[in-house]
């Protein structure tokens, strides 16, 4: 591939991810509003929020690590976008593979932990401790699921996995071939979104939004941008693993929005678990389903 073309793809993929991610944020807020019988925010609300937060006059920084933490939180996801193939653009997905992608998806939580650590706010520290515990909880089923899919496909290359699923149409989709892994993956995905039943580290009424408590201005804006990338990364990863990726953009976007609508519709119906309940739940059901699914694959 020509280096110029690769450079263009590496620029375009995060940009597309950001735009689609903003629409996903809007969709989540609209679904929440519909469930609560409200109208919901206008079309460009995520953009307004991000522009406003970056244009605040007071920009409180608690030090260098605070700034770097936010950059790591965003950068981890931006790097992850270049490893996620979209229709027409593969970026460096063929060279990276899923294992690199998994590592990159952990960077934001660690960056956030660094940044919040310097804020020295007890709510933030509790929040980040809970966020890392939650990561421990959902990463184990996620790794089992990804191992199962990669073993079945015989490769960790995401482009190949998508091509194999698209080869035989609907019947070769991961969700049809490995339904147990798909269900376990859906639960792990929901937990990694940090939405309601698993929202232990945001918990506005309890620890005042946890990691975000001391963030203001562009730091909070950075986290809003991170959320756009987070929704995009997780739903596109799921689509690539189980729903055959996308052959066209319409197909691709429809699938990724639909996948995200499932946790979004569940999220606003339930209250929050406690930390130990989340751990128990995540290590019991998705892990059990995942292990049975892997046994079928083996």
């Amino acid at each position: 591939m020509a280096p110029l073309e690769l450079l263009l793809e590496l620029t375009l993929m995060p940009l597309v991810a950001f735009l689609v991610g903003m629409m996903m944020v809007l969709m989540m807020r609209r679904i929440a509003a519909r469930i609560q019988r409200r109208v919901g925010p206008p079309l460009f609300q995520p953009l307004y929020d991000i522009v406003k937060l970056h244009s605040k006059q007071t920009q409180v920084s608690h030090g260098l690590i605070h700034d770097i933490g936010i950059v790591m939180a965003m950068g981890g996801y931006i790097a992850a976008e270049t490893l996620l193939p979209v229709p027409g653009m593969n970026g460096i997905a063929e060279k990276g593979g899923i294992i690199t992608l998994l590592y990159l998806m952990m960077i934001p939580s660690l960056g956030l932990a660094l940044g919040v650590g310097q804020c020295a706010n007890p709510n933030g520290s509790i929040g980040i401790a809970r966020a890392l515990t939650a990561m421990l909880a959902y990463d184990i089923p996620l790794v089992i699921v990804i191992f199962g899919v990669a073993y079945a496909a015989g490769t960790t290359n995401l482009v190949d996995i998508i091509a194999q699923q698209q080869a035989g149409g609907f019947a070769t989709w991961g969700a049809v071939q490995m339904p147990l892994l798909a269900v376990a993956g859906l639960i792990a995905m929901h937990a990694s979104l940090g939405k309601q039943p698993f929202e232990i580290y945001i918990a506005p009424a309890e620890i005042a939004t946890g990691p975000m408590v001391e963030m203001s201005g562009k730091h909070l804006g950075g986290l809003f941008v991170m959320q756009c990338f987070q929704l995009y990364t997780i739903s596109v990863l799921y689509v690539s693993l189980f729903l055959g990726g996308g052959s066209t953009w319409f197909d691709f976007l429809l699938k990724s929005f639909l996948v995200l609508a499932i946790p979004a519709s569940i999220a606003y119906l339930f209250p929050r678990y406690r930390t130990e309940d989340l751990l128990r739940l995540m290590w019991k059901w998705p892990v059990m389903l995942g292990l049975i699914g892997v046994a079928f694959v083996l």
């Binding site: 807020r29 509003a33 609560q36 019988r37 409200r38 109208v39 919901g40 925010p41 206008p42 609300q45 307004y48 929020d49 406003k52 409180v60 506005p204 009424a205 005042a208 939004t209 975000m212 408590v213 001391e214 963030m215 203001s216 909070l220």
Partner: peptide, 22 residues
């Protein structure tokens, strides 16, 4: 804030810490 009058239509939403609020 809730379903009857819905302030989120206007882009107004509650926040919990003074650092985040306008």
């Amino acid at each position: 804030m809730t379903s009857r009058f819905d302030m989120e239509r206007l882009g107004i939403q509650p926040m919990v810490s003074p650092r985040q609020a306008d």
